[in-house]
């Protein structure tokens, strides 16, 4: 009986004491598993990136890195949880850009881009414009000319309002000054089905999906052609200036201790170098895209400014 009471007391003491002990162990970070929050449901593109990255981080840091999926609200719920987490390096986020640079311009979010310590940019996949199977257009210029003569007649699909493909297409429309109606879908599955059935005229997709669905792409929005699709012309070589990609990286709540931050930044650089990581990404039509802390912060700020202007125009 006495033993069992001791047991209870020990349990209680353990439970109560634990939150206060977290700070003591910082000297040799990491001493326990690091949780990686992915703000999208399991199985999606971000989740696959997150799990591939977590595997590498776990190897390099020498500790477990369980992935927690916090879905909902187009990524804002999970992103808010990362912003709110204790800045001790034991919670990091694998975040694609949209919840950071798009969503805050569409509604109030309980975080801003100031609430994060930017560890690195890690992955990206270029975006490509795919056409319906019976489309009469063979290049980007034809399409733009037709749309200019028939404003509002063509439709384009995207995986959702405020998604990176949506913003990329709006940026392109702004550059060319033509009008194409936006028809958002709930994710790529329904959107690509509608494209293949000819219910919409074109679809802005992440490059990884173009190959996967064998879509009929007309342009990839990059500076140079990609190895995986050497015949697909870029927007630049077709005489336009818009480039766009779906990208993301490793972010943590603002205020990490310096040595933790350095450890994570070094680890991230190693992950980007890892051949195994690059191979895994390549299978999904994505690529490593390493930028250090300052670089990714600048890219987030720039993206937020540009997309903020587009959204202010589109949403009205």
């Amino acid at each position: 009986m006495k033993n069992s009471r001791n047991f209870t007391r020990a349990t209680l003491a353990a439970t109560l004491a634990l939150p206060f002990m977290a700070g003591a162990a910082l000297a040799d970070y990491p001493t326990r598993p690091v949780t990686a929050i992915v703000p999208f449901p399991a199985g999606g593109s971000t989740d696959l990136m997150g799990r591939a990255a977590a595997q590498e981080f776990a190897r390099i840091l020498g500790t477990d890195m369980p992935v927690t999926n916090v879905g909902g609200g187009a990524g804002t719920v999970g992103t808010a949880q990362i912003a709110r987490a204790r800045a001790d390096g034991y919670t990091i986020g694998v975040i694609p850009a949209a919840p950071l640079i798009n969503q805050p311009h569409m509604r109030e979010t309980p975080y801003s881009i100031e609430d994060f310590d930017y560890i690195c940019k890690l992955f990206h996949s270029p975006q490509a414009l795919a056409l319906a199977p019976d489309s009469p257009f063979s290049d980007l210029a034809e399409l733009v000319d037709y749309a200019r003569e028939n404003p509002g007649e063509l439709t384009y699909g995207s995986p959702g309002p405020g998604s990176l493909p949506h913003l990329a297409m709006e940026l392109f429309l702004e550059e060319t000054g033509v009008q194409i109606e936006h028809v958002p879908f709930q994710g790529d599955g329904p959107g690509v089905t509608a494209l293949m059935g000819g219910h919409i005229d074109m679809y802005m997709a992440i490059f990884s999906n173009v190959g996967q669905y064998e879509l009929d792409a007309v342009a990839i929005f990059t500076d140079e052609r990609v190895e995986a699709a050497p015949d697909l012309p870029t927007s630049i070589e077709q005489g336009f200036t818009t480039t766009a990609s779906w990208w993301g990286g490793i972010f943590a709540p603002a205020g990490l201790p310096d040595e933790v931050r350095t450890t994570l930044e070094d680890a991230c650089a190693q992950v980007a170098e890892s051949a195994h990581f690059q191979e895994t990404l390549a299978r999904f039509g994505s690529f490593t895209a390493y930028l250090d802390s300052a670089g990714v912060r600048a890219e987030v700020e720039e993206g937020s400014r540009v997309n903020g202007e587009i959204l202010a125009r589109v949403l009205d």
């Binding site: 959702g160 309002p161 958002p184 949403l315």
Partner: peptide, 10 residues
């Protein structure tokens, strides 16, 4: 309730 699937407004 929440985000409008078409416009993204809440």
């Amino acid at each position: 309730m929440g985000q409008d699937p078409l416009t993204g407004d809440v």
